[in-house]
Computed example of a mutant assay.
Amino acid sequence: MSRRKPNNMRARMERAAGGLLRQHHACIVDASVPEVQVMLNYNNLGQIISRTVANALCDFAHHWTVYISAICQNGPERWAKSVEYELAGIHVITKLPDLFEQPVQDVIASCNPKHVIGHAWIAVPDSITIDEQHAHRIYERVSAWGIPQRASA
């Protein structure tokens, strides 16, 4: 008699969704100034428009790495003061903004209020590290400073 585990379709679907998100390097970027929320490939900064990837991102709970920033500007100088952390446990994406509402306020409070023009966050359904320069490129891609990105020639 066989001692195989019973088929668990939900677990199989969750593993497949996680693999799909890692393959596409999917992340969610939300910026308050242009009021945009978009799915991006965090490696090549291309927008992800696949319904399958969107379903994998939104329908299942994941372990999230979150990069929260206060978007600042003083004349032509633009910068972001940021903090990165991993959320404990697994969460559905619809609950994320509630989980880091206080950290967003803390990051904004640590900046000069004359320079703060908004806030933004990057949420990746994986355990990764985003460096400051890479986050800056992601924020420029979604026009987090309210200045549209110039087309590359």
Score class of each variant (00 low, 15 high):
I68D: 08
R22G: 07
A144F: 02
C72E: 06
E77H: 13
L40A: 10
L21K: 06
L20Q: 09
A11Y: 12
V104M: 07
I28E: 10
V92D: 06
C111E: 11
Y139E: 04
H119K: 03
S69L: 04
Y139G: 06
E77L: 12
S143V: 02
P6Q: 15
P148E: 11
R3K: 14
R150I: 08
V116S: 05
R15D: 15
N41P: 00
I147R: 01
E77P: 04
I108T: 06
Q102N: 05
V29P: 01
I28A: 09
H24Q: 12
C58Q: 14
I28T: 07
C111H: 01
N43A: 08
E86D: 09
A16E: 13
I130H: 01
H91K: 01
T65H: 09
G18A: 15
S2E: 14
A120W: 04
P113F: 02
Y42A: 03
R4N: 11
Q73D: 00
V83P: 02
P113T: 04
V92P: 01
N112T: 02
Q149E: 12
I117C: 00
P113A: 10
A153P: 08
S32T: 12
I71D: 02
E14H: 13
P125A: 04
G146T: 05
L99D: 08
V116N: 01
I28S: 13
A16Y: 06
N8Q: 06
A109F: 03
L40E: 01
D98H: 09
Q133T: 12
Q105M: 09
S110C: 02
H91D: 00
E84R: 09
N55F: 10
A80F: 06
I49L: 13
E132F: 14
